[in-house]
Amino acid sequence: MITHFQWKPLFKQANLPGWRVSFYFKGIRYDAVYHKNGEIEWEKASPAAEDEEAIRSQIHELMLFHVYDG
């Protein structure tokens, strides 16, 4: 499960899409860019292959809640 999820706009002009996200999963911090099409671009480390789909799904749900439904 993702913990300590944070997001902020990628650009100062808020109407431009793209967000920087950070979170912890299994005690490891991850940083990524979440694009408007739902694509996730990992910054330093990417999650293990067996965890990546679950993480992508959780991030997508969190972004729908915080950004689009907010």
Rank of each mutant, 00 (worst) to 15 (best):
Y68T: 04
W42P: 02
H35N: 09
A49Q: 12
Y34L: 07
F65C: 07
D69G: 02
K8H: 07
D69L: 14
H60C: 09
H66F: 10
L10H: 07
K12N: 14
G18V: 08
S22A: 11
N37L: 08
R56K: 15
T3V: 12
S22N: 12
S46P: 07
W7M: 09
A45N: 14
I2S: 01
E39F: 13
D51S: 10
T3C: 03
G27H: 01
W19S: 04
A32K: 01
M1T: 12
V21W: 00
K44M: 11
A49K: 15
A14V: 15
E52Q: 11
W42F: 08
E52W: 01
P9E: 06
P17W: 06
Y68C: 04
M63I: 09
S22L: 06
I2D: 03
P17F: 06
M1C: 04
Y30L: 05
F25L: 01
A32P: 01
D31R: 07
R20F: 11
Q6I: 07
V21D: 00
K44I: 14
E52G: 00
H35W: 12
Q58S: 15
E41V: 15
T3W: 04
T3E: 15
F23G: 01
V33W: 01
K36H: 11
K36Q: 10
W7A: 04
E50A: 11
L10I: 03
L16H: 07
L10N: 06
W7E: 07
A54D: 10
R20A: 10
W42A: 06
I59G: 01
L62H: 08
I28R: 10
N15V: 14
M1S: 14
E61N: 13
W19I: 06
A49W: 08
L16Y: 11
P9N: 15
E39A: 15
K44W: 12
N15G: 01
L62C: 05
F5C: 06
P47F: 07
L16P: 00
T3H: 05
E41S: 12
I59T: 05
A32V: 05
Q13I: 15
W7G: 00
A32W: 02
L16Q: 10
K36C: 03
L62F: 07
G18T: 06
N37W: 03
E41D: 13
T3A: 09
Q6T: 12
A45M: 12
A48W: 13
K26T: 03
E52C: 05
E52K: 12
I2W: 02
H66G: 08
E53V: 13
A45T: 13
A48I: 09
D51C: 04
V67H: 04
F65G: 02
F23W: 03
E53W: 06
W42G: 03
F11A: 07
K26Q: 15
F11T: 10
L62Q: 14
